[in-house]
């Protein structure tokens, strides 16, 4: 499987993260998104006329929507990431999988504006991002009351991976995560998963590493 990838793109990171969590080895083809705008060049446009990345290529199959990529990786290598199939859980999973687009449009837009100088109305993008974060926070509070740590069930699913990157990187776009305790706990739960990988802007959970010898100790 070949991923056309930009290291700073949260959508590309979703796919890298899902692959790491399900143990799929990806062939990475680095795309010069910034400063080169290679995703708008002829080679990439031939694969994806929409001119966006990530693009996932597996034989004849070409995927250009990250939600489909997550679903494909899960179906192939980790069906437990697609949920148990129970009606309510399936509905929640689809709900948050669709909701992730709003995070991309709002928090993702704010981040591109603040970091890579892309055009946009920053005030509106940030306000929409805050509205989306509040919905996510409320959803996680309710899941917590039901005894579940993740968006669709008590174990992580593709919906969590679809929402996590743009949320975790919200501060890059000038939207702080300080006011959202449930989101902070959820984010920590995802970062603590076995085989979790980081991306720039999401730091390693150093608390997982054991303390080394204290000064003065033998």
């Amino acid at each position: 499987m070949k991923l056309y990838d930009y290291v700073l793109s949260p959508s590309c990171y979703k796919v890298r993260l899902m692959a790491a969590l399900t143990g799929v080895k990806l062939e990475i083809r680095a795309v010069d998104f910034h400063p080169g705008a290679e995703h708008r060049g002829p080679e990439l446009m031939a694969l994806n006329p929409a001119g966006s990345i990530p693009i996932l290529e597996d034989g004849d199959l070409i995927l250009t929507e990250s939600a489909a990529m997550l679903t494909y990786l899960a179906a192939k290598a980790g069906p437990e990431w697609l949920g148990s199939g129970a009606p309510e859980e399936t509905a929640r999973l689809q709900q948050w999988l669709s909701f992730a687009h709003r995070l991309t449009a709002s928090l993702g837009g704010a981040r591109l504006h603040e970091m890579l100088l892309r055009p946009g109305d920053i005030g509106t993008l940030q306000a929409q991002g805050i509205a989306a974060l509040r919905e996510l926070e409320a959803g996680l509070v309710e899941q917590g009351l039901r005894g579940m740590r993740f968006l669709a069930s008590d174990r992580p699913t593709v919906a969590d991976i679809a929402c996590f990157p743009y949320v975790a990187l919200a501060p890059d776009g000038g939207v702080p995560l300080d006011p959202y305790p449930a989101i902070r706990l959820w984010s920590r739960a995802i970062r603590s998963l076995d085989n979790f990988i980081e991306m720039p802007g999401i730091h390693r959970l150093h608390e997982l590493k054991r303390e080394h010898v204290e000064p003065g100790e033998v």
Binding site: H203, L205, H206, E207, K209, R210, E211
Partner: peptide, 12 residues
């Protein structure tokens, strides 16, 4: 932004 190990808070 830091991390907790044992009984200490560390700066990131």
């Amino acid at each position: 932004h830091g991390f907790v190990r044992g009984e200490a808070l560390s700066c990131i």
